[in-house]
Structures are given as structure tokens and as C-alpha cells.
Simulated assay, not measured.
Amino acid sequence: MTEDERRAIEQDCERLIKHYVNLNDAQDWPAVAALYAEDARFARPSQPGVFIEGREAILSSFLARPGRAQRHVIANTVVDVEDADHARAFSVIVLYMGDAADDGGLPVQGPKSPLIGTFTDKLVRTRDGWRFAERVGGLDFRP
């Protein structure tokens, strides 16, 4: 693999991670789930040892959550390319959460906000592009 090919994979994978965060904040759950491989595994930062297995189950888990005002900030992303079809990534995440304001204005930030943690990802190239094969979250501080 050339340096240009490696850098292209890194960029594609980092874009996937950033796209995921934007779709998550928009609460576009079908689009979020579509970024996972069919047989992917996902563990939320609040439950890093509890895996949800398969794209459909991941979608169902997002659909079952009550809506909330939220904004994720992702940073310090490093992608390590294993080969032309596999990569790993590590990112730091900050999650701001809140409730809708009674007056229809800006949401009110919740008392457990922000949450600070990480995502460790296994990424795979599919016929549809790069997707998450495994996404494991973790928290760095208790709320």
C-alpha cells in the first residue's frame, strides 16, 4: 500500500466517524445504523461491556431511546490502517445533553452534561464504503 492510499483510507475512516456524530445529533437513526456493517457490534459509552449485535438490533436500540437535545464533539481521532479493507480508530468524545426549553428556545443543559469519553472502533470496507464493524464507547469521568 502506498502512502497516498493509506492517507486516503485514514481520511475516509475519519469522515465516517464525523458523519456518524452529525447523524447521531440529528437523531437520524436509520442513517446512523446504515454506517454499521450488517454483523457489527456496538457498546454504548455508558455500558462498554454490553454489546448490541447486528445492524438491525443497533437500529432498534436507537429507536427505543427517548429523544433529547444533544450535541457530540469528537476530537483526537487517530486512524490506524491495518490493510486495504481494515482499520482501527480511537477518538475522544464530549456529549452535551439537555431538555427542550418550555418556551421553545434553546434547550436547557442537563445536570449530567457534559459527558467525556472515548470510542474505539474497528472499521471495515464494504461494497457500500467504510463501515463500523465494532464501536465500543467508554466514559472517562462519572457524571
Rank of each mutant, 00 (worst) to 15 (best):
M1C: 10
M1I: 02
E3W: 11
D4Q: 10
E5N: 11
R6P: 03
R7K: 02
A8C: 09
I9G: 08
C13P: 09
K18P: 02
H19M: 06
H19K: 01
V21N: 09
A26D: 12
D28C: 12
W29K: 07
W29G: 09
A31T: 01
A31L: 14
L35V: 06
L35Y: 04
E38H: 06
E38R: 04
A40Q: 06
P45A: 10
P45R: 00
S46T: 15
P48R: 12
F51H: 11
F51G: 03
F51Q: 15
E53H: 10
E56W: 05
L59K: 04
L59Y: 03
S60D: 08
F62V: 06
F62Q: 13
A64H: 03
R65Q: 09
R68W: 00
Q70E: 01
Q70F: 02
Q70G: 13
R71C: 12
V79H: 13
D80C: 04
V81A: 07
D85Q: 10
D85S: 05
D85N: 01
H86R: 14
R88L: 05
A89D: 13
V92P: 00
V92Y: 13
V94E: 09
Y96I: 03
M97F: 01
G98E: 11
G98S: 00
A101F: 06
G104D: 02
G104I: 07
L106F: 03
P107G: 05
P107D: 02
G110K: 09
G110L: 03
K112C: 04
G117T: 09
G117E: 12
G117S: 13
D121S: 14
K122E: 06
L123K: 12
R125L: 15
R125S: 02
R127M: 02
D128L: 13
A133G: 09
A133S: 14
G138M: 07
G138R: 06
L139H: 01
D140H: 10
F141Q: 07
